[in-house]
């Protein structure tokens, strides 16, 4: 096992195993850092949501905590003007393509976006940006759950659950850039895919894109 080292996060002394990723060390020690795409078991972090920025003494720009291995004597700040600025922009960017109708959302109250807003004092609406129109496509073909692409933040946790935990391979990313999305093979309905309705992808979803049906 890697040796234990002491690091400082926001003035708090924390003991961690060297090489462990900073994000998980912070979260285990009750220091909140916003994050959507991180999966602890992933050997190479996705680092796609760009929310877990922190500042490390001695480096000039903020770095993502999910990719940052812990080193002895590291001094970390989770809130600095540079960090807050990046998080604020990344958050607003994500909201700009997220269909904001929390009142009707099954994840209302347990949504990661709401949590980030609460923890970081961010508003759940757009200041500088215009919403990107996204067609409302809801796939409710499975018996037990539904997929609302308009709420998807493309974190990829469902794909990880589907491919690596369930070992099914029903959903994945397709297309690229602004058209990137979660789909089945040939954009079929989930009911037409190899999906076994194990529900692991629904549990992995941090927002209200994948949700269990009420009855």
């Amino acid at each position: 096992m890697n040796r234990k080292v002491v690091i400082i996060i926001d003035g708090q002394k924390i003991t961690a195993r060297e090489g462990e990723k900073l994000l998980w060390v912070a979260l285990e020690n009750k220091v909140y850092i916003p994050h959507l795409c991180a999966v602890k078991e992933q050997e190479r972090p996705t680092a796609g949501c760009r929310l877990c920025f922190v500042e490390i003494e001695g480096t000039c720009n903020p770095v993502t905590a999910c990719t940052q291995p812990v080193k002895a004597g590291m001094t970390v700040k989770t809130r600095t003007p540079a960090v807050d600025r990046l998080v604020r922009t990344a958050f607003e960017l994500l909201l700009s393509e997220h269909r904001l109708n929390c009142g009707e959302c099954p994840k209302n109250g347990s949504c990661e976006l709401q949590k980030i807003a609460r923890e970081r004092g961010l508003k759940l609406n757009l200041h500088r940006l215009k919403p990107l129109s996204k067609k409302v496509i809801i796939d409710d073909s499975p018996r037990s759950f539904a997929f609302d692409a308009g709420r998807c933040v493309l974190c990829g946790r469902c794909v990880w659950a589907d491919h690596r935990i369930a070992g099914v391979g029903a959903i994945g990313f397709s297309r690229r850039g602004i058209h990137r999305r979660i789909t089945t093979f040939a954009d079929r309905e989930l009911a037409q895919s190899p999906c076994t309705e194990c529900g692991l992808c629904v549990e992995a979803c941090p927002v209200g894109a994948l949700y269990f049906k009420k009855n």
Binding site: H163, V168, G169, A170, I171, G172, F173, S174, R175, R176, T183, T184, F185, A186, S193, P194
Partner: peptide
């Protein structure tokens, strides 16, 4: 064609959706 992608996925032993991902990327 869809059929071709399915065939390729089957032959290489990877999920069809991964073939679709690359084909659309």
């Amino acid at each position: 064609p869809v059929r071709a992608m399915e065939k390729v996925a089957e032959a290489l032993g990877i999920p069809t959706v991964d073939v679709y991902g690359a084909a659309t990327f």
